[in-house]
């Protein structure tokens, strides 16, 4: 539980920073960046964080089910534009893959 408490503490820190700066970035992202800075300054991951990450990371998709199920509130939109949206998602992958593939093949081989 110490790990979860650390995560919640950084989330609260993110919430405060977001409130003070009114940055248009969600508190959770600021919290993540703060935790990243903390880890870099420590040069290692505290054991409590390692253990919470190992137990929660594999089941992360579970927590996404409720919001994803919300697609049923957009039935009309899906029926009208669903196929076109799928086509757009597919087409847009092509330039992304070409650019990533091209850049990653530049430079010396490691």
């Amino acid at each position: 539980m110490t790990g979860l408490l650390i995560l919640l503490a950084f989330l609260m820190a993110g919430t405060l920073v977001q409130h003070w700066t009114s940055a248009p970035i969600p508190p959770s992202i600021i919290g993540m960046l703060l935790l990243l800075v903390f880890l870099i300054s420590q040069r290692k991951v505290p054991a409590a964080l390692t253990s919470i990450t190992q137990s929660l990371a594999p089941i992360l998709p579970l927590f996404l089910i409720p919001v994803s199920v919300g697609v049923i509130t957009h039935e009309q939109l899906v029926r009208e534009h669903g196929l076109l949206l799928l086509l757009i998602l597919a087409i847009s992958l092509i330039p992304g893959t070409l650019v990533c593939g091209w850049i990653m093949s530049r430079g010396k081989r490691s």
Partner: peptide, 25 residues
């Protein structure tokens, strides 16, 4: 459904903070 679903949904925020760990490693 969301009256029950939000218990799981609310966990997403600390889970986003958690992404710092694999990123750092």
């Amino acid at each position: 459904y969301m009256e029950g679903g939000h218990y799981l949904h609310d966990m997403l925020q600390p889970l986003i903070v958690m992404l710092a760990v694999p990123l750092f490693l």
